[in-house]
Design a protein around this nucleic acid. Structure first.
Length: 933
RNA sequence: AGUCGCGUAGCUCAGUGGUAGAGCACCUCCUUGACAUGGAGGUGGUCGGUGGUUCGAUCCCACUCGCGACUACCA
């Protein structure tokens, strides 16, 4: 094995082996376990959020697979209607073409072609991350079978009256020329103005003032509203006003929606261009005057001088004309929330159109109940509240989009304009006895999320009753971000309950959102995006700069981005490998909502990979050529200790993973590997293996423990770092195979070829050993105490020192004698000498281990001043602790009310500290007499 | 306005009704036969503030300050 772990070539080779062996498909007849991959956009690329979530899903899948579950991780991609169509339209625009130049059919061909070209990018990236999805079941939302499910759902919902067509105000994107759902509208505060406009009262000479943020919509006003209780305007209700610039008159109406305290207390009402006004219009039977074309230019309902103007241009002109007419009272700066399309950022226009809607209340109710009753569980459970909040206030879902890329709505119009819904044209004709009447299919497509909502069952073969559907639905867990609870999770719940009669998943694990190291969202315009594969493979600084500064929407940001990038990554990014990235991701997966990503963390786990690699190198070097591991073997206390520690680690991991605490699981494994296996156990094996007096059975016991512990550790780490564990395991497994076979381990006579198919180690596979833990614990404290003296006294590691034991108990004497070889080796001792009771000790630096004093003679080794300082510090620390404890014990309420064991523990602690301080004080006095003074 | 979350070491974060933890950073010593992507030791915190409950609060409760997210609405 090489001296350092180099991930690059190993990873590709191993993935290829896994995939070609068919090991990703659910095998065996174990309990089903299923995760649905949230389908990424087919033309997208993998970002940090994917890397994060996919790591967690892969860890869960591999963990269950190794535990004998029949585990399916279902992959697939989403057609992402708007996003994908926009990409292709942009490509066309570069050639000065629009989709209309091509026509629907040709345009769709282009999109399919683009899908074919770029669709493999994301799956290639997923493979690099070790993703163990069942590629043989890969799905795309517009595959024929999934499209069939979409049509089926639409038709059934329509037949039940849960899908209807209606004319009402929708969120209209004038750039895309399509309706979008409420969720696709992002409202953010922007600076605007509040225009106060005078509306003359008919026949009076007086006027009322209305305040508006959208003066151009004045042309569509059909009333002015006041609060019915507003004394100022009571007399005005029912009167007519002159609507400026239009020659129309409009009534003053009273409606309690109006807040008398805001502005002048008079509101202009434009029912065709504002959601609240629309509602008010319905209440008061007001006419609707639509003044916009679909691309938000003024139409023929506007006075002729404004027709054809863009809404912004019209605003300026109208304000100027009002001003000229003396009808502007004032203009104030005003902050307002501007609704924009989440894809186009165009200002969304409430617009009156015919659209298809899903009647949501009857679907939401069971979905709400399922979570209330715990049939689906949110983790962390707080997210259930967010879900409830939305589901209780949910509004009908506009599902039609005036796009071309997507699932065509299965509705046909006859020449009389009647609508017929059916699975296909033939069925429609049959069902409605339409003969060969001329039928035209609805040109619209469905919201992308409509098909996504069916994902948990459409991918498993619904509407057919397939074996997979029976086996894997409901799925085990959904892993996703909180940003799509409404878009996706809630809708899957509704559709799953409606069409499968059961929840789509038992658990919903909501992950945090990956941000940059400052907590900022990663975005192209901030220039802080990191491509996960650049962490895996590394990237040179100049390439990184180029990647971050090309294709910017605002090219003027490039210099700043370049500067920050060069500052943050002066050397570019090193090739840390997939396992380091994955371990980092898992270690970040706690309960918090925002996750700040630090490259330093990855470097740390890259080092961890290297540590594991080198520990394995040591184990293999130690074992190879040293004979058969099967045979008489005697386990040392260290051997029994590491096995016991492994057992308790595995128990921690098991609990952590059952709670989706990937951070705890990785910490447990990291601590065991580095701090127990490497720092202690490997060092403890050396004196045994190099000993001239140890028996062959003792050496075999240690070699065997080294091998089996490492082998189990590799299996335990595998869900988190699949590549390095597979690579090392391939070398270790042949060594341990005969042992496992001899023990008929877990009834598995034959070891599998891959660690990914090996059984996950269980805590119960390894013996707990309290006695070994106690003895090794004693040794550790002994060694640490000596090291502390060495460290603080700056004694070179190469310098062997003499250690004197004073006041040793029988047990101290026994353990010190029994473990002499370990103690001298790990503490860097020349020898250990036990002082007889009453025997005088030379001037020494002291450490205490309970009653036992460890003395390091100072002569020629230690500066008395340093020892005085050290002792003084220890005593001061003890005094401070003693002060607190005595205060506590002096409070009779504490002694009376606290649990007896707590009181007893504190008393014991006081006694111990007092004894220590007495001993330390005496020592201090002696050192002072000797050198200090 | 409503809902939710956060405030713990220089940084990023765990955590607990009973002696404050990790990683990174920092300081000292060390190339010793797995590993300098390493080893040994160390410095560093009134756990945002105030009050309450309790024998005891960083933890539970109330209030408060600061930060953030989401939902709705703002003429």
């Amino acid at each position: 094995m090489d001296k350092a772990y180099t991930p690059g070539d190993i990873e590709r080779r191993i993935y290829e082996r896994w995939e070609s062996s068919g090991s990703f498909a659910p095998g065996g007849d174990g309990q089903p376990y299923c995760i649905m991959l949230p389908p990424p956009n087919v033309t997208g690329t993998l970002h940090m959020g994917h890397a994060f979530q996919h790591t967690l899903m892969d860890a869960l899948t591999r963990w269950h697979r190794m535990r004998g579950f029949s585990a399916l991780w279902q992959p697939g991609t989403d057609h992402a209607g708007i996003a994908t169509q926009m990409v292709v339209e942009r490509q066309l625009a570069a050639q000065k073409q629009s989709r209309h130049d091509l026509g629907r059919e040709k345009f769709l061909e282009r999109v399919w072609q683009w899908k074919a070209e770029s669709g493999s990018t994301i799956s290639r990236q997923m493979r690099r991350l070790g993703t163990s999805v069942d590629w043989s079941r890969d799905k795309f939302t517009m595959d024929p079978d999934l499209s069939r499910a979409v049509t089926e759902v639409f038709v059934r919902l329509h037949d039940e009256g849960l899908i209807y067509r209606g004319k009402r105000l929708v969120n209209w994107d004038p750039k895309l020329l399509t309706a979008v759902s409420d969720l696709e509208v992002i409202s953010e505060e922007e600076n605007g103005s509040l225009w106060h406009i005078r509306y003359p009262i008919v026949g009076g000479g007086a006027h009322v003032v209305v305040a508006t943020t959208r003066p151009e919509t004045l042309l569509g006003d059909t009333a002015v509203a006041v609060n019915p209780d507003d004394e100022r305007y009571k007399a005005l209700v029912g009167k007519q006003l002159e609507l400026p610039l239009t020659g129309r008159t409009i009534p003053v109406i009273a409606d309690s929606y109006v807040d008398a305290a805001f502005g002048s207390g008079c509101v202009k009402i434009t029912p065709a261009h504002d959601f609240n006004d629309y509602e008010m219009g319905l209440r008061h039977d007001l006419p609707l005057i639509n003044i916009f074309t679909p691309d938000a230019k003024l139409n023929e309902n506007a006075p002729v001088q404004y027709r054809g103007m863009d809404r912004d241009e019209a605003r300026s002109k109208i304000v100027a004309d009002l001003e000229a007419a003396g009808l502007i009272e004032k203009i104030e700066p005003h902050k307002l929330k501007v609704p924009r399309g989440d894809r186009t950022h165009a200002v969304i226009e409430p617009y009156l159109t015919d659209q298809w809607y899903v009647k949501i209340a009857p679907l939401a109710e069971p979905a709400l109940r399922a979570v209330e009753e715990g049939r689906t569980r949110f983790i962390p459970e707080n997210w259930a509240k967010t879900y409830f909040e939305w589901m209780r206030n949910i509004k009908d879902w506009c599902v039609s989009r005036q796009l071309w890329w997507g699932h065509r709505i299965p509705a046909w119009y006859d020449e009389a304009g009647r609508i017929h819904v059916g699975r296909d044209e033939a069925e429609v004709r049959r069902k409605h006895s339409l003969g060969d009447a001329k039928l035209t299919q609805d040109p619209d497509v469905l919201d992308t999320w409509f098909s996504s909502a069916l994902w948990p069952f459409s991918t498993l073969g619904w509407p057919d009753t397939t074996p997979e559907l029976k086996k894997f639905y409901p799925t085990s867990v959904l892993v996703t971000g909180f940003d799509i609870i409404f878009f996706w999770v809630a809708r899957m719940m509704m559709m799953g309950l409606k069409f499968m009669g059961d929840v789509p998943f038992r658990d919903v694990y909501i992950t945090g959102l990956i941000r940059d190291e400052h907590g900022d969202k990663m975005s192209k315009s901030k220039g802080n995006v990191i491509d996960p594969l650049d962490i895996v493979d590394g990237i040179a600084l100049n390439d990184l700069v180029a990647k971050r500064t090309t294709g910017l929407m605002q090219p003027q940001l490039a210099p700043g981005i370049e500067k920050n990038t060069r500052k943050q990554f002066p050397e570019g990014i090193a090739a840390y490998g997939t396992d380091a990235l994955r371990f980092t991701m898992a270690s970040l997966a706690g309960v918090s909502r925002d996750i700040n990503f630090h490259m330093g963390r990855v470097a740390g786990y890259r080092n961890f990979c290297n540590k594991l690699w080198n520990a394995s190198r040591f184990v293999l070097m130690t074992i190879e050529g040293q004979g058969d591991l099967v045979g008489d073997a005697e386990l040392s206390v260290a051997d029994r200790w590491i096995v016991s520690r492994l057992s308790s680690t595995l128990s921690r991991v098991d609990h952590a993973l059952k709670d989706y605490r990937f951070d705890f699981a990785t910490t447990a494994l990291y601590e065991f590997t580095w701090y127990e296996f490497c720092d202690w156990y490997l060092e403890l094996t050396k004196p045994v293996l190099q000993s001239e007096t140890a028996t062959e059975a003792q050496k075999r016991g240690t070699r065997r423990t080294l091998a089996t512990t490492l082998e189990a550790l590799l299996r335990a780490l595998h869900p988190f770092m699949p590549f390095i564990t597979e690579e090392i395991w391939q070398r270790v497994a042949p060594v341990t195979a005969p042992l496992l076979a001899a023990a008929n381990f877990r009834g598995v006579a034959k070891q599998p070829d891959l660690v990914m198919l090996a059984p996950y180690p269980a805590a119960t596979d390894f013996a707990s050993d309290d006695q070994a833990e106690a003895e090794v614990g004693w040794m550790q404290k002994f060694i640490l105490a000596v090291r502390q003296i060495r460290g603080e006294m700056d004694i070179a590691p190469s310098r062997r020192i003499l250690l004197l034991l004073q006041n040793a108990s029988a047990r101290d004497t026994e353990l010190a004698g029994k473990h002499m070889a370990w103690l001298t080796r790990l503490a860097g001792l020349e020898s250990i000498k036990q002082l007889a009771p009453g025997e005088a000790a030379p001037e020494s630096a002291t450490a205490l281990l309970g009653e036992l004093s460890l003395l390091v003679p100072m002569a020629g080794l230690i500066d008395p001043k340093a020892e005085i300082e050290r002792l003084t510090k220890r005593i001061a620390k003890n005094d401070s602790d003693l002060g607190k404890l005595r205060g506590k014990l002096g409070n009779e309420n504490f002694v009376r009310n606290a649990p007896p064991d707590v009181v007893a523990a504190d008393r014991a602690r006081v006694a111990e500290l007092e004894a220590q301080n007495a001993s330390l004080a005496a020592q201090l006095e002696r050192v002072r007499r000797m050198g200090g003074g």
